[in-house]
Write a protein that binds this DNA or RNA. Sequence first.
DNA 1: TTGTACGCGTTATCAG
DNA 2: CTGATAACGCGTACAA
Lengths: 347, 347
Amino acid sequence: MVRQRRPTITDVARAAGVSKGAVSFALNGRPGVAEETRQRILAAAKELGWTPSHRARALSASRAFAVGLVLARPPELLGVDPFFPAFIAGVERVLAERNQALVLQVVTSQRAEEDGYRRLAADGRVDGVFLLDLRVADPRIALLKQLRLPAVTLGRPDVASPFPAVLVDDRPGITAAVSHLVELGHRHVAHVAGPEHFLHGAARRDAWEGALRAAGLPPGPCVPSDFSAAGGARATRQLLDLADPPSAIIYANDLMAMAGMAVARERGIDVPGGLSVTGFDDTELAAHLSPALTSVRTDPSGWGGVAARTLLDLIDGDGVADVEMPPAQLVVRASTAAPPPTPHQAP
Amino acid sequence: MVRQRRPTITDVARAAGVSKGAVSFALNGRPGVAEETRQRILAAAKELGWTPSHRARALSASRAFAVGLVLARPPELLGVDPFFPAFIAGVERVLAERNQALVLQVVTSQRAEEDGYRRLAADGRVDGVFLLDLRVADPRIALLKQLRLPAVTLGRPDVASPFPAVLVDDRPGITAAVSHLVELGHRHVAHVAGPEHFLHGAARRDAWEGALRAAGLPPGPCVPSDFSAAGGARATRQLLDLADPPSAIIYANDLMAMAGMAVARERGIDVPGGLSVTGFDDTELAAHLSPALTSVRTDPSGWGGVAARTLLDLIDGDGVADVEMPPAQLVVRASTAAPPPTPHQAP
DNA sequence: TTGTACGCGTTATCAG
DNA sequence: CTGATAACGCGTACAA
């Protein structure tokens, strides 16, 4: 009664009275076996409860049937980034369809990150990887090329890249935020940026600066920060300490914006009465703050799905092209309003 | 110059002039080869750039050298749970040491979750799994037993379980929160709970109720919710709408507490002047809100490390016992204070 | 120490 | 065209 060993195609072959090869052909639906024989083999496989041995297939095909993701995050940011679980959920939806697995590595330093890719490649644990959080002159592009590890980048690298990219454009969202604030009458719009070495951080910063210039306004001060609440609070204090503080701040993510709103409140500055604030990510909490946070909505789960599909197609050798994703959109809520009258700017 | 095929132990054997078996012994540092021969073999392996084939080892040893984690989260909670990335980071630290990989599945329904475990088991993708978010009469225990998949549970199941547990106790943190509030003078302490079918949700609820009783106070109202900001806001409105609203609310996580604080503010209720609030998780943002949120600090990363070690030991067949983790601790900040005078309760 | 079977599916070769 | 046979991928384990 105990089924100790799982059945192999050899067992199926014996049961159906054919050879191993015939079983393989039949199970994979390939020509070369008569229809009647095929049915007999399939029936035998079903009766024995045969399931393919993933390990044997992996060895035989020199494939892992898995893709990898190495995530580098400083410890304090590990629990607060809303992007990554949503991205993974999108990835999984596609992987599940194709019976692929996701091998995840979470590391807390860039050095460990490269080691992570090296290990994945050396062990043949994965057939390809996702490249997130692109950096300026990102060394991982060359590393993956050298490791001959297929990859898909989220965003377009600033260096030559042999890999397809899922193009996400944060800029329209930031541009919309700036326009929104300018229309409300703001003339002094600051930015609390993400780390400068991240391309998405730089893109948001550039979009902020470009939108202000396009509106004929001088870019206000920009404080680079680190996406953390502590960093957002620090940057906000810095901006509010200025002789000529901004009337609005565009934050590169919601978390920093939330911390910034708290700093303003501590100082008795009303949001949005005395200071308008916008975030980025549109986290679930954003809509439930007081005031509710105006933010930029992105679609990490959708990106994950597209990235996964692209990566699997690349691994399968299908021709793949970059995919352009819809632009991020501004969600206006209650943290933005007309600026307060500024006496010292009166004519 | 092109190294097309990666070297196998057969190549190493040929180069060193010995047999495959000898190479295997030498590379695994096992007795049975003369020291001199061993050196020659190691030198040959190094020169050829041999690295072990993970796939061949997996097939031969019938092991995946990987562990799995299936995470079920409703979409709206995917990006907001601080627990899970930190837990994974802790897991990875241990896995990296032992050259194991983590196979992750993120699903959005319980049905898909069971399928996830089934797939991991059927494919032999993993040698064991973590069981998180234990539920009342959790059916996954039986499922994993049936699948013969070694597992480690986070927390002690309420059903008989053949698996070792990493015992995390949320209760002392909640108890401390209640005591703190009672000492401040609160006599009407409500609770916004997590979903009732989660053991940790139930444990937090029980701790709240038990601590109040121990203090000789009747448990205030308890509103079960779902850990989301929207749910926290809804529950808070419900509590504040009561004829006799609580003077303090203990939330089962920070996110609901933050949303609750916003609801209070919208209604013109000062926190902590008119309402004290405590959270759970001690997310990074908690310390940077205004007022800063009193919360219960847990150590998901530490739990992850211990869970991983326990699981790997279990897989290796070492005897493993339950591991008790230090209790959660209350971090007092500015969202808790003495209750306002309550005229209608005056003698 | 060596030789070889084993784990298990895939695929090329070849006979019918 | 049908199907059998055998080699392959690669490390491990055991008998000789």
